[in-house]
Every structure is written in C-alpha cells, then in structure tokens.
Amino acid sequence: MRTTRDRIRHAISFELIGILLATPLAAFAFHLEGGDSMVNVIASATVAMLWNYIYNLMFDHGMQRFRGTTEKTKLIRVFHAIFFEIGLLAIMLPPIAWYLQISLLDAFIMDLALAIFYMIYALVFNWAYDRIFPLPEWTEGNA
C-alpha cells in the first residue's frame, strides 16, 4: 500500500498538472474571465486534493480488504475514476454555483464537463503514476 508521503506526492502532482491544463480550457469553454476560471479551478483543485487523499486511502483499504492487494485492473481503474468524480461533483456543485452566480443546472453542466475532463485525466495520470512509481508488491500484469 502507498505511504502517506507517496499519497501526498501523488495528490500534489495530480492537482498542479490538472490546474495547468484545466484553467485555460475552462476559461475558453465556458467564456469565463481568466480570474474566475482560475479561482474556480484552484478552489476545485484544493478540495479535490483533500478528496483525492481521503478517497484513495479508503479505496486502497477497501481493495486490500476485499482483494488482498491494491493492484488495480483496467476495469477497477475505470470505476475508481468514475466514483472519484461523482464524489467530487457532489462536494463542489453548490460552491461553484454560488461563486459564479449561476444556476445549479448551469453549475452542474460546467462541473460535469470538468468532471469528464478530469475523469479522463485521472485515468491517464494514475496509470502513468503507477508506472513511474510502482509498488514492490505488484507483479507485471494489471498495474
């Protein structure tokens, strides 16, 4: 299982790269002022970083308990990314609507678009991270 230090490295690197990619994309896609896009993305990233740590810790404990390993198959990686984004969507929807002074439906559409982006990004990032920083317990195969 990953150490606390490794989980922190994972969360910070995930969010920093995500901010660099998502801020200009959100400004362009949603016709936001650069400052509003940056505040929205950075606030979301901050919450996501905390959620990332908590979610991955719970997910790994669940995998260890039910599968006896934290090694993820391709299907588990897909579900891992989907459930992460569903949880984050539930957490972030009200603050986004409030800050941007938009309806919950508009915030949902915006958050859904960002969630889809981040779901794909999470899948790619986590696969790459596991390749760059594999755990000794893993054998070749599904990682």
Rank of each mutant, 00 (worst) to 15 (best):
M1W: 06
T3K: 08
T3H: 11
D6T: 00
R7H: 00
R7P: 00
R7K: 09
L16W: 00
G18M: 02
L25Q: 08
F28D: 07
F28W: 15
G34F: 12
G35P: 06
G35I: 06
S37M: 03
S37W: 11
M38D: 10
M38T: 02
N40I: 06
V41N: 00
I42A: 00
A43V: 06
S44T: 05
A45P: 04
T46I: 07
V47I: 15
M49Y: 05
Y53W: 11
Y53T: 05
I54L: 08
Y55D: 03
N56Q: 10
L57D: 13
L57A: 07
L57F: 14
M58C: 08
D60F: 11
D60K: 04
H61N: 12
G62E: 12
R65S: 09
F66V: 15
R67K: 15
G68F: 13
T69E: 08
T70L: 07
K72E: 11
A81Y: 14
A81D: 05
A81H: 12
F84R: 04
L88A: 06
L89P: 01
I91V: 11
P95R: 10
W98A: 03
D106T: 15
A107K: 03
F108Y: 12
F108T: 07
I109C: 09
M110R: 03
A115S: 14
I116Y: 13
I116A: 07
M119W: 15
Y121Q: 01
Y121C: 00
W127Q: 09
I132R: 09
I132C: 09
P134I: 09
P134F: 10
P134V: 12
E140Q: 03
